[in-house]
Write a protein that binds this DNA or RNA. Structure first.
Length: 382
DNA sequence: AATGCAGCCAACCGCACCGGG
DNA sequence: CCCCGGTGCGGTTGGCTGCAT
């Protein structure tokens, strides 16, 4: 028997507690959050034993991971995130968890839902899933049959646009100007709208008609009070932490812009011999750039310590959470991104774009994430 | 106003993997 | 080596909402 709705679980005929299914209640969320605060993550099956919750461990883990854990980002994906998802999907396929590891604060479920919706819509409209400059790996060929009107090539053709960017949410003329660090490659340039307004680009027809690029600023659970400004469900009452609001406010940006920092931290953790001067050089470059790199997309990178107050997590716990979000293989892949793109594009420079079309070409990316020319690995990483 | 449809999202399910006994 | 519990991941489903007809 399945017990729906709130209230205490009923005893099953066999003597065991009948596990509840369905939507979570506020009380359940608070209980689960308190459990994690006290015992930490993991051992989810113990939740049922140590609390009154009649939820299976898997359900608890899912609820925590997708809704209760700190640093979650809620709301629509930004254009940069969408771009990254598409790029990652072209390389990883339906590896939602690994994709989520590259998108701080986003869950695999979110990404999966986003992609499935996109897939459904694009297939119905007969549109290609990938922009011209993103060619899916071979496994994608099998996973998603080629659209009849979109010639598929495992490698980009020489004529493929190498600097595709996502449509702006505002006209290019309204984009705030960016300051570029002159230390970056002279190839650095604004990617002008004609790149994606190119009439040959299937995406050019998307932006005006396809709602995928529209923004919705808040998507909240219908079960729990959700604060758009805080980005988390408000369980502070239960946690007795009235001070967390301010931290949460900054936490949104902090967490998101943490991507780069996480990359560096992870790389350092994986390879002790990671050369410090390079890192300093990178960080100095970022400083010189007046926080315009990534910060335009991900906000200002403040101290992540202010997140540790969330739900009573200690810095160590939080750090471990973040460290666990990315595997070394992921890092290598991401770090290889630039060089790999260049390799497969016959020398053409691929780019990474950020909000308002700050463009990083391979040279810039290589500056940020130097790769050993011989081994194609990060220095110190074999 | 009623209906149908699409989008969105939470949550469940089954499977695979891993580590400990 | 096998079994089992815990965990993670990906696929799928069902409910809610908004919009168009």
């Amino acid at each position: 028997m399945i017990v729906y709705g709130g209230g205490a679980p009923e005893e099953g005929g066999g003597g065991g507690v009948v596990l509840k299914k369905g939507p979570w209640t506020v009380a359940e969320d608070e209980t689960l959050a308190a459990y994690v605060r006290e015992y930490g993550e993991g051992n989810w099956n113990a939740v049922q034993k140590k609390t009154w919750l009649a939820r299976c461990g898997k359900s608890c883990r899912l609820r925590w991971a997708n809704h209760l854990r700190p640093n979650l980002r809620k709301g629509s994906f930004t254009p940069e995130e969408e771009r990254l998802i598409i790029q990652l999907h072209s390389q990883l396929g339906n590896k939602w968890a690994r994709m989520a590891a590259q998108l701080p604060g986003r869950t695999d479920n979110e990404i999966k839902n986003y992609w499935n919706t996109r897939l459904k819509r694009f297939q119905r409209q007969g549109l290609p899933l990938y922009p011209p400059d993103i060619s899916p790996n071979n496994h994608q060929q099998q996973m998603y049959p080629q659209q009849p009107n979109t010639p598929f090539s495992p490698l980009p053709s020489p004529t493929t646009a190498s600097s595709f960017t996502f449509p702006l949410l505002q006209p290019p003329s309204l984009c705030p100007k960016r300051c570029y660090n002159t230390a970056f490659s002279p190839k650095a340039s604004y990617t002008s709208s004609p790149t994606f307004l190119n009439t040959h680009s299937p995406l050019s027809s998307y932006q005006s008609t396809n709602p995928v690029y529209s923004m919705k600023h808040e998507l909240s659970s219908n079960q729990i009070p959700y604060s758009a400004s805080l980005g988390v469900y408000q369980v502070s009452k239960f946690l007795g932490n009235g001070d967390c609001n301010q931290n949460l406010n900054t936490g949104l940006h902090t967490n998101t812009c943490q991507l780069l920092e996480d990359l560096m931290e992870e790389a350092e953790a994986l390879a002790d011999s990671f050369r410090a001067p390079k890192r300093r050089q990178l960080m100095a470059a970022l400083e010189d750039n007046n926080n315009n790199f990534f910060s335009g997309s991900f906000g200002h990178c403040g101290s992540s310590n202010n997140l540790f107050s969330l739900q009573g997590l200690t810095p160590k716990e939080d750090e471990s959470l973040q460290m666990n979000t990315m595997q070394d293989e992921d890092i290598t892949k991401l770090l290889d991104w630039g060089s790999e793109s260049e390799e497969i594009s016959n020398g053409q420079s691929s780019v990474i774009t950020t909000e308002n079309n700050l463009v990083l070409d391979d040279n810039q990316f290589a500056l940020l994430f130097p790769v050993d020319d011989d081994t194609n690995n990060l220095p110190g990483i074999c």
